Amino acid sequence: MGFKLLSKLLVYLTASIMAIASPLAFSVDSSGEYPTVSEIPVGEVRLYQIADGVWSHIATQSFDGAVYPSNGLIVRDGDELLLIDTAWGAKNTAALLAEIEKQIGLPVTRAVSTHFHDDRVGGVDVLRAAGVATYASPSTRRLAEVEGNEIPTHSLEGLSSSGDAVRFGPVELFYPGAAHSTDNLIVYVPSASVLYGGCAIYELSRTSAGNVADADLAEWPTSIERIQQHYPEAQFVIPGHGLPGGLDLLKHTTNVVKAHTNRSVVE
């Protein structure tokens, strides 16, 4: 069995187990497998329904001669939608809004960016022009300005110390501490036991640490421990890039980060 097929099978099995364990909360999309990078042309966006009122959005972007996937989250909030992270750029984010209108038909009224990198804030200006209120932590807003990236308009308070959590509509926002970046936030959907790890969490097929220019490698494993301790009931975990899975993604990420750190020390 090929690795790609095995990865998709694991996603399907995880979703099936969740649907059985929580039949009222989960209505997993039966329309197909989780979209992969090879299936999404740059400039297009796919939506994948995880649970009743919960979707991931998947886009792709060219970077350094390669094409990478990027995940975000959409959560229903009454007759409105909360968006977590842009679709990595203005063109993708405009396509995301169009796809949401086509498939869901509810307005996106608020959006949260989970850290300051372009795959999370690139497209904020498109959201703002569409009347979406954009939010991020003060740290993310400051770092985005320093980096020359787009800056969300509103500040999220109460997320300055490791372990801080605040309720934001249908989700809980959690600051686990520094990891992929010093400002990275985690998003949890309690009604569906869905954990969105953003770039602080890796997919299972990833074996290298990737972009760690703004990471705190020493603190990252401790931050992941905080996530595990705060959300032990999480059933569906979405990484910032690639295929979702279960809580095993947290341990896998820790292993990859520690291996990278150990290699760096040896070198």
Score class of each variant (00 low, 15 high):
Asp125Tyr: 09
Thr109Glu: 07
Gly65Trp: 06
Leu217Ile: 11
Ala15Arg: 09
Gln61Cys: 05
His260Lys: 12
Pro35Asp: 07
Thr207Phe: 09
Ser162Gly: 14
Tyr48Asp: 07
Leu82Val: 09
Glu157Cys: 07
Val237Ala: 03
Pro232Ser: 10
Leu82Pro: 05
Val194Gly: 01
Ser160Cys: 06
Phe63Cys: 07
Leu83Lys: 00
Asn92Thr: 06
Phe3Tyr: 10
Ile50Gln: 05
His241Leu: 03
Asp216Val: 09
Val124Tyr: 03
Glu157Asp: 14
Lys91His: 11
His180Ser: 00
Arg142Phe: 13
Gly242Lys: 04
Gly32Cys: 07
Ala136Pro: 04
Val124Lys: 02
Glu145Lys: 14
Leu10Met: 13
Thr222Leu: 13
Gln228Glu: 12
Ser137Arg: 05
Val45Lys: 01
Thr14Phe: 07
Gly240Gln: 02
Thr93Arg: 01
Val124Glu: 03
Val108Lys: 02
Ser223Pro: 08
Ile84Arg: 00
Thr109Gly: 11
Pro170Thr: 07
Pro23Glu: 10
Trp88Tyr: 00
Ser137Thr: 15
Val11Gln: 08
Ala94Gly: 11
Thr254Pro: 05
Asp248Arg: 07
Met1Lys: 05
Thr93Val: 00
Ile186Arg: 01
Ala21Phe: 14
Met1Leu: 06
Ser38Ala: 11
Gly169Ser: 05
Gly78His: 10
Glu219Tyr: 05
Gly246Met: 05
Gly32Trp: 10
Thr261Cys: 06
His230Asn: 13
Asp214Arg: 05
Pro41Phe: 07
Ile186Val: 13
Leu96Cys: 01
His252Phe: 01
Arg76Asp: 06
Leu82Ile: 11
Asn92Val: 01
Ser56His: 07
Tyr188Leu: 00
Ala95Trp: 04
Gly163Tyr: 05
Val54His: 01
Val126Met: 06
Leu156Asn: 01
Pro107Met: 08
Arg263Pro: 14
Val194Ile: 10
Gly169Gln: 04
Met18Ser: 14
Ala234Thr: 08
Ala218Ser: 13
Pro41Thr: 12
Leu173Lys: 03
Gly177Tyr: 02
Ser7Pro: 11
Gly105Met: 10
Asp85Met: 00
Leu73His: 04
Ile58Met: 07
Thr254Val: 14
Leu173Asp: 03
Ser193His: 12
Thr222Cys: 06
Leu10Cys: 14
Gly65Glu: 11
Ser31Gln: 08
Leu83His: 00
His252Gln: 05
Tyr135Met: 02
Arg128Pro: 05
Glu233Thr: 12
Glu150Phe: 03
Ser181Lys: 03
Leu6Pro: 09
Ser205Phe: 09
Thr86Gly: 01
Ala129Lys: 12
Ser16Leu: 11
Met1Cys: 01
Gly53Met: 08
Ala25Lys: 15
Ala218Met: 11
Leu73Ser: 01
Lys258His: 11
Ser181Tyr: 04
Val171Lys: 00
Lys251Trp: 11
Ser191Gly: 12
Ala98Gln: 13
Pro107Leu: 08
Gly148Met: 07
Pro244Ser: 05
Val108Pro: 09
His57Cys: 01
Pro35Cys: 04
Leu204Pro: 05
Asp79Leu: 09
Val187Gly: 02
Pro176His: 04
Thr14Trp: 03
Asn211Arg: 07
Ser223Ile: 01
Val237Tyr: 02
Glu157Gln: 14
Ile227Asp: 01
Leu217Phe: 07
Leu9Val: 14
Tyr231Leu: 00
Lys258Thr: 13
Asn184Ile: 06
Glu267Phe: 09
Thr153Lys: 10
Gly198Pro: 03
Glu233Tyr: 12
Gln49Met: 13
Phe3Glu: 08
Leu96Ile: 05
Thr254Lys: 13
Gln61Met: 14
Val212Ala: 09
Phe174Trp: 01
Lys251Cys: 07
Val37Ala: 15
Phe116Ala: 08
Asn92Ser: 06
Leu6Gly: 11
Ala94Lys: 14
Ala98Tyr: 10
Gly148Asn: 10
Ser161Lys: 14
Asn184Gly: 02
Arg263Phe: 12
Ile238Cys: 00
Thr261Arg: 12
Glu267Tyr: 10
Ser161His: 13
Ser7Thr: 09
Val67Glu: 15
Trp55Val: 02
His230Met: 14
Arg120Leu: 02
Thr134Asn: 01
Tyr196Met: 04
Ile100Lys: 00
Phe174Leu: 09
Ala130Asn: 14
Ile58Trp: 07
Asp52Pro: 12
Ile224Lys: 02
Lys91Asn: 14
Val37Phe: 15
Val112Trp: 04
Gly123Gln: 04
Tyr48Ser: 10
Gly240Phe: 04
Val265Gln: 13
Asp52Lys: 10
Thr253Gln: 00
His241Ala: 00
Glu80Asn: 09
Thr86Ala: 05
Leu83Met: 10
Val45Glu: 03
Gln228Leu: 13
Thr60Leu: 14
Thr86Pro: 02
His117Glu: 00
Trp88Ala: 00
Ile74Lys: 01
Ser191Pro: 07
Ile17Pro: 04
Lys258Gln: 14
Ser193Pro: 04
Pro138Ala: 09
Ile17Ser: 12
Gly65Arg: 09
Ala15Met: 10
Phe168Ile: 06
Asp125Ser: 11
Val67Pro: 15
Ile100Tyr: 04
Val266Arg: 14
Val28Cys: 06
Gly246Trp: 03
Phe116Met: 06
Val146Met: 14
Gly245Cys: 05
Tyr48Lys: 10
Pro232Phe: 06
Ala179Trp: 03
Asp52Gln: 10
Val112Cys: 06
Ser162Cys: 07
Asn149Ile: 07
Gly242Ile: 04
Asn255His: 11
Val124Gly: 05
Pro107Thr: 14
Gly246Leu: 04
Ala130Glu: 11
Ser139Thr: 13
Phe236Glu: 07
Pro107Lys: 15
Val75Gln: 03
Ser205Leu: 09
Val257Pro: 01
His180Glu: 01
Val75Thr: 05
Val121Trp: 01
Ser70Asp: 02
Ile201Ala: 03
Val166Cys: 04
Ala19Tyr: 15
Leu96Lys: 00
Gly32Ile: 09
Gln103Glu: 14
His241Val: 00
Arg128Lys: 13
Ala95Glu: 10
Leu106Lys: 12
His252Trp: 04
Ile40His: 05
Gly72Asp: 05
Val28Trp: 08
Pro239Cys: 00
Ser137Phe: 02
Ile84Leu: 10
Ile227Val: 11
Val124Pro: 03
Gly198Gln: 05
Gln103Ser: 14
Ser264Cys: 05
Gly32Lys: 09
Ser30Trp: 08
Gln228Phe: 05
Ser113Tyr: 03
Leu156Gln: 03
His154Thr: 09
Tyr135Thr: 00
